[in-house]
């Protein structure tokens, strides 16, 4: 088994996760991520299993909510937690496409 990921593989997963990595970090993650991936690769050795999925370990099903309003909060309440706001809006650097 390989000891580390290719640089482009590290860059790919960092891109999926939207995490910027320095060059040194990339080298380190190339090793660390490979160790983890070698671990999860063990799943390929497991044979003989059922098709049925377990998504959440509960026996019950969804109980539907009534179409009624219980909670509404004011923008002022959450404004203090918003890194950048402008009037009643949340502000971000311009979005590139719709």
């Amino acid at each position: 088994m390989k000891e580390k990921l290719e640089l482009c593989e590290v860059e790919h997963v960092a891109n999926l996760a939207r995490i910027e990595l320095t060059e040194e970090e990339k080298d380190q993650y190339a090793i660390d991520l490979k160790k983890l991936l070698n671990e999860v690769e063990k799943i390929s050795e497991i044979k003989n299993y059922d098709e049925e999925l377990l998504i959440t370990p509960v026996e019950h099903t969804v109980s539907l909510r009534k179409d009624e309003n219980k909670r509404t909060i004011s923008f002022n309440e959450i404004k203090k937690n918003i890194p950048k706001s402008s009037g009643n809006f949340v502000e971000v650097p311009v979005m590139l496409h719709e």
Partner: peptide
């Protein structure tokens, strides 16, 4: 580390080879 590996495990075909299979064996 965990976010990156997790993103990888759900991407493209991996969602089937890893994630789906894990849910099946979990059952």
């Amino acid at each position: 580390r965990r976010i990156m590996v997790g993103s990888y495990l759900l991407s493209g075909e991996n969602a089937v080879t890893y994630y789906n299979k894990a849910l099946q064996i979990r059952d």
